[in-house]
Nucleic acid binder design. Structure first.
Lengths: 295, 295
DNA sequence: TATATTCATAGGCACTGACTATCATAATAA
DNA sequence: TTATTATGATAGTCAGTGCCTATGAATATA
């Protein structure tokens, strides 16, 4: 059986005439004649009763036609949804980002992508790097904005932004007197860190060459917002990504901000996606737009 | 697009693996690979995202698969109903007969056909010859039991029974004294006829060489049952088919029955059907069974 | 690094669907 | 009836397609 055969059957039934049906299908009459015979032989029943006057459906032919039209409806639907989806800038676009990026970036990204790609249906998901990586690999996400390079060769990353790191401290803190800060200047026992699982915690710890056990118990919290509040309350110092400042999160009365000058005191944001993704064109366009937001 | 392609898509989606999918379809892996590429090129979208680890559906691939499965369901249904219907002795069988035959014959015919062809779904319709002929020609009936030969070469007829005609008269009528009746013996002015449209009326009139106008007004009625009752009431005489007697319809106190000996005083019952009917085998078997009833 | 796995590609072959030309049969007109 | 027209079926031919085997490229795994 064949979709074409079903269309032929439908045409013959509609026209009641092989010649006219053939014309409507843009094929010759013998083609229809032969193909219908094959279909009937295949199914083992007579679908059309031929007369010199009219070609009419048998009872079983009517039932087959009804089902054939169901099938053809589904096939038409396939053609129609794929015709829409063949536009690379349409359809659902699922992207994720980590908690230390999303509050500073996602609102702008959603706005820009929404206007640049109006036919895209944007779906956003926030989670830690490991979860987002899983989502990427099993196809639940199209892209993720991460601050770490891909952990597997199945993923690719487009660099978005080399983000400086900042030290924040209470206004009265003695760091306030220094202009240019180095990691070696920091009183590491006063550092407030994010809890485990956050890649930004790992980066901070690596940078300071701390044993992660040293400060875990008392000073790890689950969000940058909490860290900022604690610093503002004079409970310690911390390192935060620069986007926090440009988003206005550090504009608090009791907080001092200093750039961190040490070598490697940046984190590289990138747009990560499956190497096998069929939406490469769209993803690269999206990366360009996000980079634009970050200028 | 092609039904086979949809099956391949389904298999790849299920197995997440071209090789296994190919095995399940009993084709080689390159076949699947090439065919899916063609399908994707045809539709203009990527349906499957290929990895060395797994072949997974894209979002549009999932939507296409859902519709493909709708189509395949309909196709399976076609295969299943045609497999059933490929038995020539199954399915709906629509037959008709004229009013001057059905009361004597159809009950027995229904019983015999029902037991001989248990998978047949019998549908019966009674009407006059002209209507039944229309029904035959437009495909609303498979066969009809008629007492006249086909009016068009598009219909064929299998002879069933050469039915004698009988004269009925009131017991006290002077015909009662004659043993063998001829048409010339009949007092034609006392004849009660069926109304126009009934072929049996036409046969009777032809036989008696009456002008149909002569007796129309007073003595035409719409059923044989009425005729028999009128004769029983002494209102006239009539000619009835022999089956009326074997069915016991003439077993009434005041009715005398005499065979009509004239040449051509019979009517030939036959099973009429479209020459183009695809159910020739079944129809011939049915004719045989009806003939059996008539012995 | 070597091996195994997986999907893609290339070349060859058989089958199928399409065409044109023609036939057989039936409906219609002369 | 006989001639004409119309319809579906058949025959022969050819191009396209689906399938195969053999092989390649890229990745995962030992």
């Amino acid at each position: 059986m064949n979709i074409r055969d079903l269309i032929y059957l439908q045409a013959i039934a509609r026209h009641g005439h092989f010649g006219k049906a053939a014309e409507s299908c843009n094929v010759s009459q013998p083609t229809l004649s032969v193909q219908l015979q094959k279909l009937e032989a295949d199914l083992g029943v007579t679908l059309i009763e031929r007369t010199k006057r009219a070609a009419m459906l048998t009872p079983i032919g009517q039932r087959v036609l009804a089902l054939a039209e169901d099938a053809l409806t589904a096939v038409d639907a396939i053609r129609s949804i794929t015709a829409e989806a063949s536009d690379p800038f349409s359809g659902q676009f699922r992207f994720g980002s980590i908690p230390t990026i999303s509050p500073f970036l996602v609102p702008d990204v959603l706005r820009v992508l929404g206007t640049t790609f109006p036919r895209l249906e944007l779906v956003f998901r926030e989670n830690i790097t490991d979860r987002l990586t899983e989502n990427l690999l099993n196809g639940d996400l199209d892209v993720a904005i991460l601050a770490t390079p891909p952990v597997t060769s199945r993923l690719l990353a487009i660099p978005l932004y080399d983000e400086p790191l900042l030290v924040i401290h209470p206004i009265g803190h003695n760091l306030a007197e220094l202009d240019k800060l180095n990691v070696s200047d920091l009183p590491l026992d006063q550092m407030i860190l994010l809890s485990e699982g956050h890649c930004f915690r790992d980066q901070t710890v690596d940078l300071c060459r701390l044993q992660s056990r040293t400060t875990l118990a008392e000073t790890s919290v689950t969000s940058l917002e909490t860290i900022i509040s604690l610093v503002a309350a004079g409970q310690g110092i911390s390192i935060v990504p620069a986007l926090a400042q440009s988003s206005g999160w550090l504009d608090r009365p009791n907080i001092g901000v200093k750039p961190l000058r040490s070598k490697g005191a940046t984190r590289q944001l990138n747009l990560t996606f499956r190497k096998s993704s069929p939406r490469r064109v769209l993803i690269e366009a999206v990366a360009k737009q996000i980079s634009g937001v970050l200028v």
